[in-house]
Simulated scan of single mutants.
Amino acid sequence: MSKQYVLQAQVRELQGKGASRRLRHTGLIPAVIYGAGGEAQSISLRHNEMIRNLQEEGFYSQIITVDFGDRKEQVILRDLQRHPAKPIVMHADLQRIRDDEEIKVLVALHFINGDVSKGVKEQGGKVSHVVSEVEVSCLPKNLPEFIEIDMIDVEKGQILHLSDLKLPEGVTLPQLALGSDHDNAIAAIH
């Protein structure tokens, strides 16, 4: 079971550069919620709460509950703007989701048993990870926290492709729907 992420939010009326700057000085982040047939809404989030959640890999690909006090909305993090030199989040874009509508999200890949795989242990190869995340398409209830890839049986010179991934039920890779030309490599042992 993946962790439940909750962000406390307030609706904000004032918009613009000056209003956003004043908001940041009070420890809040300007953000916007959009999508799922609803109007775009400007909100503010607690900076410390956001920074704490951003330290966890799952936060970038999991469903987040935005709590307004009187109501809650389910969203996913779509974009994040950070300060170029300081550890400050400048703005966040959150997309509303609906339970009956498929979403596309980047999900992390976790490679296991690479150091004890046949190609490394017996054949003297070295593991090379080509990608660290893939785009998946699924209903929100089927969204995986990560996809695990067991490299124990991978031999030297063998390449793992997207089609080799063992996906959870209800999860597909949109890139594979484009055809066999798009079955990209994800890892190899050289």
Rank of each mutant, 00 (worst) to 15 (best):
V75Y: 04
G170Q: 02
Q4S: 09
D67T: 10
V131H: 04
E148A: 03
E122K: 12
H182Y: 10
N48L: 14
R21C: 06
Q175R: 14
D153T: 05
I147M: 02
I159K: 12
A177I: 03
A9C: 07
L167Y: 00
H110N: 13
K156N: 05
G16Y: 09
V134Q: 08
I152E: 08
R24C: 09
D181G: 15
L176D: 12
M90P: 01
G114Q: 15
P87M: 04
G16D: 07
V131D: 07
S42D: 13
R12L: 00
G38T: 09
L165K: 02
Q4T: 13
E169T: 10
V105D: 01
L176H: 12
D164P: 10
D181R: 14
L94G: 03
E155S: 10
V107F: 00
V131L: 11
Q41Y: 04
I103R: 03
S128F: 07
L139V: 03
K156Q: 08
Q74E: 05
A36Q: 09
S128D: 08
H91N: 15
P168C: 02
I51M: 15
T65A: 12
N142S: 03
D183N: 14
E39V: 11
I189K: 02
A108W: 00
V32S: 13
R21H: 13
A187R: 06
R24Q: 11
L28Q: 05
R71S: 08
V89N: 09
V11Q: 06
E101R: 08
H110T: 12
G69I: 08
S61N: 04
S44E: 10
G16E: 08
R98Y: 00
E73H: 06
D164H: 14
Q41R: 14
I51A: 13
K126I: 15
M1R: 06
V134Y: 08
V116C: 15
P30N: 03
V116N: 14
E101S: 03
Q10K: 13
N142F: 00
A187N: 06
D153V: 03
E155P: 00
I147H: 01
R78I: 03
E101A: 05
L160I: 09
I29M: 09
L80V: 10
D67K: 10
V130W: 13
G58V: 00
E155R: 11
L94D: 05
V116Y: 06
E13K: 08
D67R: 10
S42A: 15
I64W: 12
R24G: 11
K156S: 05
L80I: 14
L7V: 04
H91C: 10
M90F: 04
E13C: 01
F68C: 06
I147K: 01
S20M: 07
G58I: 01
I189W: 02
L23Y: 10
L167M: 00
I152N: 05
Q62I: 02
K118G: 06
